[in-house]
Write a protein that binds this DNA or RNA. Sequence first.
DNA 1: ATTCCAGTGAACAGGGACGTATACTAGAGT
DNA 2: ACTCTAGTATACGTCCCTGTTCACTGGAAT
Lengths: 196, 196
Amino acid sequence: MHRRAELVDQTRQRITEAAARLHTTIGPANTSIAAIAEEAGVTRVTVYRHFADLDALFEACTAHWQAENPTPDASRWPLTGDLDLRARQALLALYAWYRDHAAELFPLFRDLTAMPRSTQDLMRDERGQLGDLLVQGHAQDDDAGRQMRAVARHLVGYPTWRSLAIEQDLSDAEAAEIGVRMLTGMAASALAPGTR
Amino acid sequence: MHRRAELVDQTRQRITEAAARLHTTIGPANTSIAAIAEEAGVTRVTVYRHFADLDALFEACTAHWQAENPTPDASRWPLTGDLDLRARQALLALYAWYRDHAAELFPLFRDLTAMPRSTQDLMRDERGQLGDLLVQGHAQDDDAGRQMRAVARHLVGYPTWRSLAIEQDLSDAEAAEIGVRMLTGMAASALAPGTR
DNA sequence: ATTCCAGTGAACAGGGACGTATACTAGAGT
DNA sequence: ACTCTAGTATACGTCCCTGTTCACTGGAAT
């Protein structure tokens, strides 16, 4: 009863891969179950057999894609040392990854609202943690620290990279350097008091 | 032959208003002609009578909405004087407008790719000009100036405001101040040479 | 009073997607 | 050899949208 389960898994795999391929090309919003089935070389009924609802398919699909395209390992960022060194290294790695996956990421972010709430929340939280980690130890628990964290979370987002690097045609190094500058500038002096 | 044309115009107006209302609530991508007709209290056939294709409707709709919701008048920005004064005033006005229209703007930007190319290009160009105006006289024709313009164009965009003010929960004043700081910081010293 | 026409109401044919059900097939498991 | 079942092929009913046609009505224009 090995080979049997194996074949079933292969079919399931083919479906999730097909879904991932469509999500990263035409986008989740335009991805119908019929299209997934066709792309996977499978009948619509088979898709229904494997995934109760679209959310289940989405979940498998997300997990699969993330496993295939791991983001830069944040745990390797230098946790001590100057803020600008850490920020530069982190942003450069992150922005390089965004550029490598720009084509696939675009439809995903464009159709963000077409995805299950859980997936949206997951992505938002991951970005938030990444941003917080970026300025950990430099952002206190006051207004200035809150603002600094906000900027950090803004900087680590794909939309920010896209705005600077694609729409404004900056190089990744330029975009990263601007981010570094922004963070170090905020660390140097608080915003005008009363600015809130 | 006055009243007659007037009534026709009123119908046309009702349709464009209905379209604008739907575009700013459920979003252009989800706005069907049937829904517009119903919202306008009119038959689908009537809609087809007034607008040859969706693009024509979109055009009328965009013009109508822009006339009803004028953006802050950039021509009133101080063209001389310190960069930070101009940037603060401009960003505060812009961000206040974004906040006033946050609910309507969200679906519009979300469904940007569902709109006619011409409309997309128009919006992009307007933002670009706004950004350039923001740093006019301060950005030279070199790399540093190009980077500064890029940052300015990034700052005046709705997505940037949304990221900072909504997603990161900053006040408009904080977001604007961060923008000011970013621009003045870039004016003070160029990025590290070789960063390109 | 008569003409004109914008808008109505109803219907058509076509297309895509959804979810479900049925009988059948081929290969794995025993 | 026989059973079990994942997947196929096909079809059904439902829904929404599209664009177009047609006869009709009611009010404006003359």
